[in-house]
Amino acid sequence: MPQNIKGIISKVNRSEVASIKSVVSGIIRVINDPESTANDLIEVVEVDPPLMGKVLKVANSAYYSPVNKIGDLKHALVWIGLDTLKELALSQKVYDIFEGNKSINGYSRNRLWKHCVAVAKLSKMIFRKEFGEKGTNAYVAGLLHDIGIIVEDHFMSDEFKKIVGRASAEEKNLPILEKEVFGFNHAEIGMALTKSWGLPQELSVAIGYHHKPLLVEPSSTRLTSTIYVSEILSKKCNTNYSDIASEDDQLFTKCISALGIDPNALNLILEDVRKELAAMHKQGLF
């Protein structure tokens, strides 16, 4: 079944997967607009009652342990903060297409989701602790970086299952097998899809090059490298799927030196994220 990316993307955009498009791009627009206010976010979320319900459910969970029951987004905003609320809303929406527990050779949508969340958290933490920046875009890029895998899972599931099996048996990285079977990999699908959704160029590039982070323009390397580093680190977080079977230590070392991060510092960050993820897991947020 020879297919090209364009065909896949138009198929996706006619399917249910695209139902997250408007809300996801809306939230990302709010995140990237320095002039935006809390009301802008609320407006985006309010048009999606199921999402609002999920957001409020999480905001009311023991993880955030509000004093009084949170009844609306404004209350949630005051309690958990605008930036957290943005991330929460985005992740809850993206999760729509990651739902599913069916396991094949260590892969399941749920485990892929955990992987994405871990990458998102790690990337954000690197930005915050190492660069002293908010890192919300790093979080978004981390959350969406493997969206191409989900597309394969949804639209090319037979081949995808085989590839996943082979990757596990042959200890091969997923992109190599994808290239072999489809002629393109999940990073390229993700980049094309997010471009077609009109997401910021920076994000599409970070998604498209997260397996070859140094092959982009210097201005983009910091984000692509961070995603790559986080991808490798995430393997050390429990119960999570990884599309990288054999690590390229050389690339990893190049990346952290390009980012100017001491490996020990990465360990500190990893420790913090693991604790946070463990806490979230404990509260049933995973």
Binding site: K129, E130, G132, A265, L268
Partner: peptide
Amino acid sequence: MRAKHLSN
């Protein structure tokens, strides 16, 4: 490192 992380 911790100090740097905390200050950031």
